[in-house]
């Protein structure tokens, strides 16, 4: 029983550079175990220690996301095509920039809080400077 598996560029170090490899299994979990026997380390990049699919990995069976087909328990049949992709759908640039900026929103909020606090303190500082004179 052969299932075709498409490997993303970033994981081809585990497949000797191969874009497409073949494997077997009744479920996605079985298939990944089978692949790992020939491409050691591959499964650990896709499945967490807790035994779930890694959050930023998307796996598709015949173009359908396995998370809606039972995830690692998704049933496979001979001739199925499995595609593994990093989670960047909907515009890699937009996502990358948005992810960067979401981290910085916290920083920006901290800056504006700091400024507000400084503005609140400023008149008191000015008054005390006058009093000292």
């Amino acid at each position: 029983m052969a299932i075709e598996v498409r490997i993303p560029t970033i994981l081809r170090s585990y497949t000797g550079g191969a874009k497409v490899v073949e494997g077997a299994g009744d479920t996605l979990g079985d298939l990944l175990t089978d692949l790992d026997s020939r491409h050691a380390g591959l499964k650990a990049r896709l499945v967490t220690d807790a035994g779930a699919l890694h959050r930023f990995v998307n796996v598709y069976v015949n173009d359908e996301d396995v998370r809606f087909l039972g995830a690692l328990d998704a049933k496979l049949n001979d001739g199925d095509s499995v595609t593994i992709l990093p989670a960047v759908a909907g515009g890699a640039f937009g996502f990358a920039a948005a992810a960067a900026i979401s981290q910085h929103r916290a920083a920006a909020a901290a800056i504006s809080q700091h400024r507000a606090a400084a503005a609140a303190i400023a008149p008191r500082v000015a008054r005390s400077a006058v009093a000292a004179r």
């Binding site: 560029t9 970033i10 960047v88 890699a92």
Partner: peptide
């Protein structure tokens, strides 16, 4: 997708 790292993915 290039060499996008799986550990640094992004989900909205």
């Amino acid at each position: 997708y290039g060499l996008r790292n799986i550990d640094e993915g992004y989900v909205p």
